[in-house]
Each structure stands twice: as structure tokens, then as C-alpha cells.
Design a protein around this nucleic acid. Structure first.
Length: 386
DNA sequence: TCTGGGGTCCTAGGACCC
DNA sequence: TCTGGGGTCCTAGGACCC
């Protein structure tokens, strides 16, 4: 069966929410972003974009380009609230909704025709309902897969609907610059440009074997499919986070070792609190450090067993800093701590027994009575330790 | 105008085991 | 004596996304 995938993208989301909540800002240039000396633009309203302001631009430059804009720090809790409203609307059309970020989502409309009518009508209805129920504009793309649906919503901006039918795929893709394709960033775009490939049409004309010689067998095959608008990746509703992290760029570079260790501890403790909140344990601790000259290093270590213990995590993070000579020679602008290898915190042996004592006891019983002898009861059922 | 913060995925090399 | 090949785990870095 032919698929219908819809992509919704809220227009200038953070800025639009600010304009919604503060009517005086409507029709005015608004820039949402970090207001410190090292802040960057998260979202600029269309009025601000007219002055050349765009996402990821240093706030300092945005102030030069558009000094009369209103600059506001982000209010993520509020954006989250509105995003939830939008997700609820989307969920009323299909059980398969995949949020990509706060302001974007895929909806699989395949097979929803009997309930909601043709996909194209659904797209219009959904577009209207978001406007009516949230007061915010969005752009909607509709096509046969995620790759094309996302490109279609971009073509629909601002505030429109764009449908890409199967017979129009080649004509739709050909003139687009390769960098617009999902997965082709600045680096790949540059490598392609050096080889005379600028548009998706150019890319389609490159031999598969040549692409593979440039980007390896996997990368080459991937680009070959992208150029043809081929993508069979499914719309995946909720996915578990694989890692969590927290990092800070300091207004001024840090140089004192004690201060740096203290900051890393603080980040580690905050992350441990998130673990507890989300009922997770972590097995990998990472630190990230960025010097004044922007060189960046990471170090990571595996823990002997999963934990959410703040002191343990903080100790490991600080130890990682010392290992591999991550010191403050030239001043440090960013510190980060990350946790990975996340597992549900349904069972935490370290709180019942000292870990080594537990392990020893298990060995003891097994060696005497055989491996089948010992099982432990879990809150979620009866799983055998191995 | 010096370049955020939250993530995901891929690659490459080394250790280690069989 | 100077030689293997595959599989898996771990670490570090980097590209990419919003």
C-alpha cells in the first residue's frame, strides 16, 4: 500500500509563542536566545529574519543587524506546554506520531482514509485546527515518505501546505541544493561541491560506484537513495533516550582547577537528579571540555554497574578530567557531563548489598550448588541473575 | 560576531577472546 | 617464529539534526 507521511513544522516556534503571549510583540522583530555574551539565536521571528537574523547566529551579531528587535530568553516549560497541545491534535489523526523536536513531528496517515478521509483533506484539517486551537501558524508537508514530507513542509513555509505526489518527486527534488537533504550537512555539501555536485539533480547523475568511492559503501548507497527521494524508514512513536547530558558555556573562561572540578560536580549532581526523576540508572559517564581556542575533548568510562548515585557519578566525572590531562592551560569555555548506557531503575543491587559482597555471595552459592540454584525476586517479576 | 545546548548515529582503532 | 581471522566491546572524534 502506498504510504502517506505528513510532516508538521511550527513556524518560528519559540518566537511565535512569545508573540502569542505578549500581543505587543506581534508584527515586531523578536529574537529568542541566550542573552549572555556568548549566547546564540535559538529562533528569530519572520520580522527579525527580514534583517538577516537566523538561528545559531551569535546574539551579538543579531543585535547589530536588528538593534530594535526584542531579545528574550527561552521559556522551555511554556514551549513544552504548547508542543503538548499540538501533539494531542496530531494524535487524534493517527496513533503513529513521531516528534522530532519541540516544534516538529511526523504523522503516518497511511490507512487513516476510512476514518478521516483522504490524506490531503486530513492535512488541511489538521493545519487549520492547529491554527485555531493554539493560535500558532505551522507548515505542513505531505508525501510518500519522511524524507519527502520534511522537504515538502519546508517548501510550504511559512504557513502553507505542500503535497508531493509520486509523479512529481523528480521535478520537486532536482533543483534543490544537496544541503537541503536530511543528513547532508555543511561538510558533505562541501565535499560534493568540490566534485561539481550542487543540486539534487546533479547528485542523481553521479554513478553509484563513484558515490561509494567518495563516501564508502554505506554512505554512497545512502546518498544514492536520497537523490531519488527513496526512504522507507518508519514513523516511530516514542523512543527511549539513549543518553542524557548537561553542558555550560561560561560567560568567561575558567582557569582554576578547583572551580572547574566544582562545576563538573554540579553538572554531575544535576544529571543524577534527572536519573532519579526518570527512574533510570547509567553505566557510562562522560565529560566534555572545550578550551578557549574551541578545541574540544571528551573522555568516558564504564562503571562496574549501573548507578544513579550523585557522589559516585561526580567522582567519576572529576577523575575523567584528570585522566588524559584535561587541564585549564588556556582557559576553559565549556564543561559538560553526559550519562549513557541507561537502564530502568527497577533493580538496584547496590542499595541492598555492597556490590562486591553480593557478587561474592552469588559466586559462592553457584560454585556449591550450580548456576540454576540462585534466583532473585524483582519488583517486575522473576529474572535470573547471570 | 567568535561560534548554545540537547541529542543521534557512524567510523576507526585497539584490546581481548577464540 | 613474526603470523590468522572473526567477533565484540570500548573509547574518541566528528557529522549531523533542531
Amino acid at each position: 500500500m502506498a504510504r502517506w507521511i505528513l510532516h508538521v513544522d511550527m513556524d518560528a516556534f519559540f518566537a511565535a509563542v512569545e508573540q502569542l503571549d505578549q500581543p505587543a510583540l506581534r508584527g515586531q522583530p523578536v529574537v529568542v536566545g541566550g542573552l549572555g555574551p556568548r549566547g546564540v539565536v535559538a529562533t528569530a521571528s519572520y520580522e527579525a529574519r527580514a534583517f538577516g537574523v537566523h538561528s545559531a547566529m551569535p546574539i551579538a551579531k543579531a543585535r547589530m543587524l536588528c538593534p530594535h528587535a526584542t531579545f528574550v530568553p527561552p521559556r522551555f516549560a511554556r514551549y513544552e506546554q504548547v508542543a503538548g497541545q499540538v501533539r494531542e491534535i496530531l494524535a487524534s489523526y493517527s496513533p503513529l506520531v513521531e516528534p522530532l523536536s519541540l516544534d516538529e513531528a511526523f504523522v503516518d496517515l497511511t490507512g487513516t482514509e476510512r476514518l478521516h478521509g483522504p490524506a490531503e483533506e486530513t492535512a488541511h484539517g489538521l493545519h487549520q485546527r492547529i491554527r485555531a486551537e493554539t493560535g500558532l501558524a505551522c507548515s505542513v508537508g505531505l508525501a510518500g515518505n519522511k524524507l519527502l514530507a520534511k522537504l515538502a513542509s519546508e517548501a510550504a513555509k511559512p504557513g502553507g501546505i505542500h503535497v508531493v505526489h509520486e509523479q512529481d518527486v523528480e521535478g520537486f527534488l532536482s533543483p534543490l541544493p544537496v544541503g537541503r537533504l536530511w543528513g547532508i550537512g555543511p561538510h558533505t555539501a562541501k565535499v560534493l561541491a568540490e566534485r561539481g555536485v550542487h543540486t539534487v539533480g546533479d547528485l542523481r547523475d553521479v554513478d553509484a560506484s563513484l558515490l561509494c568511492s567518495w563516501f564508502g559503501p554505506r554512505g554512497g548507497a545512502h546518498l544514492w537513495r536520497l537523490a531519488r527521494g527513496l526512504d522507507d524508514s518508519p514513523v516511530v512513536p516514542a523512543r527511549e533516550a539513549k543518553s542524557i547530558s548537561q553542558e555550560v558555556t561560561y560567560p568567561e573562561d575558567l582557569v582554576q582547577e578547583e572551580v572547574i572540578a566544582g562545576e563538573v560536580r554540579q553538572l554531575a549532581v544535576a544529571l543524577a537528579a534527572r536519573l532519579v526523576e526518570e527512574r533510570l540508572l547509567a553505566t557510562t559517564v562522560r565529560v566534555k571540555i572545550r578550551w578557549a581556542d574551541f578545541t574540544t575533548r571528551t573522555r568516558q568510562v564504564q562503571l562496574p554497574e549501573p548507578t544513579d548515585h550523585p557522589v559516585l557519578i561526580a567522582d567519576e566525572a572529576v577523575a575523567l578530567l584528570d585522566r588524559g590531562g584535561l587541564h585549564a592551560e588556556s582557559g576553559i569555555r565549556l564543561l559538560g557531563v553526559g550519562l549513557a548506557g541507561l537502564v530502568p531503575a527497577t533493580f538496584r543491587p547496590e542499595h541492598l548489598f555492597a556490590p562486591s559482597a553480593l557478587t561474592d555471595a552469588l559466586h559462592e552459592v553457584r560454585s556449591r550448588h550450580g548456576p540454576e540454584r540462585l534466583t532473585l525476586g524483582f519488583p517486575g517479576g522473576d529474572r535470573r541473575l547471570s
